[in-house]
Design a binder for these strands. Structure first.
Length: 482
RNA sequence: GGCCCGUUGGUCAAGCGGUUAAGACACCGGCCUCUCACGCCGGUAACACCAGUUCGAUUCUGGUACGGGUCACCA
């Protein structure tokens, strides 16, 4: 037995990466890497009906973007391959037969119809062990007759099975609660319940990290390890991720709560590092520190299972927004512009200084998807609401603003250059010479050119963004309307 | 419904028998300021309930309530 820790992430290729699933991958990865262990990626694609084209690529891409690298897995390979379950069918068959031989499993010839009839009106109801004690002769006969069959795990009828979970402590389940679950389906594919155990063992997985929906079914898996005579792994079940409903209640995080897949979030302009940082803190908390910004390396250095929480966490978009805005502010200009400029360049007219605009936006957006809605006043000359000229703090009125605009127009037309500093000085001098408050002058100009009450940036900053021609044109337009 | 798990402010959470019960987001004030944002300063707000153990329970035990999970030829 190796004494290094090995964990794995074993997603189903569903076509998208649910954020809860990503968090599981993260924790599994961190648990291993925090102790210098190994991390394996395995694709669990045994459900032929749910096969989705290209879904594996989504998984690979997500792990790449988030910086969760694996030591073994599809593409990179490894000593325990193949890492895609549909390519391991003979292995499952072999191990299932071992269990039949040892009396821990049996053939079941029941029809789907019979199984259906066992359920109650709520759709709940389990197998009744109908084929559990079929004689060897009957089995041979049915097999020879080509009757479709499944292979079931034979559960003990009495007693309890328990294990100690790293997060939840001891979990004990009466064996009478355990159904003789299917290991190999009629189509020859194994079920999760069976093949993940075989794979985890064969791949040397020492710590099984997964969502707590498996908490109560884990005794069945323990029994499988026992039946094979294998040492059971350490289990680390994670609390679920929840979403808040409109009525204020919470439920398992799903689409109705908003974007819940990694790719949705990225498409909305959230940064992978921000997403990772945020979800790392949903259900885990570092010890002995209040730090909340973590790079992947820092997460590796700080992660420990003691920090894992037992109770479910609500995914809060507000906090994600905050994290993302912080990450945006920390971006260097080059990478920030790489994301922001294409969006602005596509939307804005040529005369707009998109680089300056991007700069103004940097401290004001929480995600890149927000840019479009923030620059409507740049793209179009909005309808003017004259009330905007009234500002109590600067004591402005439409009339006072009209005077300011009329005075400043020629000044601006003669401006030596058209940058923020020059314009600001120009207007400040005008304010001083006419004994007006600078704020009052700025207010008039800003409203005249933006035609909007709240804007990203002040009057002179916006004039720089708009350029001389458009700025002058907007002031003339505003004047004509007053 | 049976079984299992959970419950500290609106949210994420620290706490691991004795604390003025941290911190963060959000919210509300104030400062800064050419509006807003950023930044800075400050504020409101929590141990679900009932018993028991104990000199003392947010911390331990039991029950109740509420929430969640699970009982598939899905994972």
């Amino acid at each position: 037995m190796s004494n290094t820790i090995t964990t794995r992430f074993a997603p189903s290729p569903t076509g998208f990466m649910h954020i809860g699933n990503l968090r599981t991958a993260l924790y599994s990865y961190l648990l291993s890497k925090s102790q210098g262990g190994k991390f394996i990626l395995r694709i669990e694609d045994t459900d032929q009906e749910r096969f989705v084209e290209g879904a594996v690529d989504v998984i690979l891409k997500t792990l790449e973007m988030t910086g969760i690298d694996y030591d073994e897995g599809p593409v990179v390979g490894g000593e325990h391959g193949p890492y895609i379950q549909s390519e391991r069918l003979p292995i499952y068959k072999e191990y299932a037969e071992k269990l039949i031989a040892s009396g821990h499993a049996y053939y079941c010839f029941c029809t789907p119809e019979r199984l259906e009839s066992l359920k109650d009106d709520k759709g709940i109801g389990g197998y009744d062990g109908h084929c559990r004690d079929l004689s060897k002769e009957e089995v041979e006969k049915n097999l020879a007759a080509g009757i479709p069959y499944v292979i079931r795990q034979k559960m003990p009828l009495e007693g309890t099975t328990s294990y100690v979970d790293e997060v939840y402590g001891e979990v004990a389940i009466d064996n009478s609660e355990l159904r003789d679950q299917i290991m190999i389906k009629a189509d020859g594919y194994p079920t999760y319940n069976f093949c993940h155990v075989v794979d985890d063992y064969l791949m040397g997985v020492t710590h099984v990290v997964r969502g707590n929906e498996y908490l109560t079914s884990t005794p069945k898996y323990c029994l499988l390890y026992d039946a094979f005579g294998w040492e059971r792994p350490t289990y680390v079940h994670l609390p679920l991720l929840m979403g808040k409903d409109e009525d204020g209640k919470v439920s398992k995080l799903s689409k109705r709560h908003g974007a819940v897949s990694f790719q949705d979030l990225v498409a909305d302009g959230y940064l992978p590092e921000a997403i990772v940082n945020y979800i790392a803190l949903l259900g885990w908390c570092p010890k002995d520190t209040n730090q909340e910004f973590f790079t992947m390396d820092e997460l590796k250095a700080n992660f420990s299972m003691e920090g894992l929480s037992k109770s479910p966490a609500v995914f809060d978009y507000e906090k994600l927004n905050w994290f993302n805005s912080e990450y945006i502010k920390k971006m260097d200009d080059e990478s920030y512009n790489e994301k922001a400029l294409p969006i602005l360049d596509e939307l804005c007219p040529d005369y707009i200084d998109t680089k300056k605009l991007a700069e103004l936006l940097k401290s004001r957006i929480y995600a890149f998807c927000e840019i479009k809605e923030r620059i409507g006043f740049v793209l179009d000359r909005l309808d003017m609401d004259k009330e905007l000229y009234t500002n109590k703090k600067n004591k402005t009125t439409p009339e006072s603003c009209k005077e300011v605009l009329a005075d400043c127009l020629p000044l601006l037309k003669n401006a030596k250059s058209w940058d923020n500093d020059t314009l600001f000085e120009l207007l400040k001098e005008y304010a001083a010479s006419t004994e007006k408050k600078a704020g009052a002058v700025m207010w008039a100009i800003r409203i005249a050119i933006a035609r909007l009450g709240v804007t990203p940036g002040g009057a002179t900053e916006l004039m720089e963004v708009f350029g001389k021609e458009e700025s002058i044109a907007r002031i003339e337009l505003a004047l004509s309307e007053l």
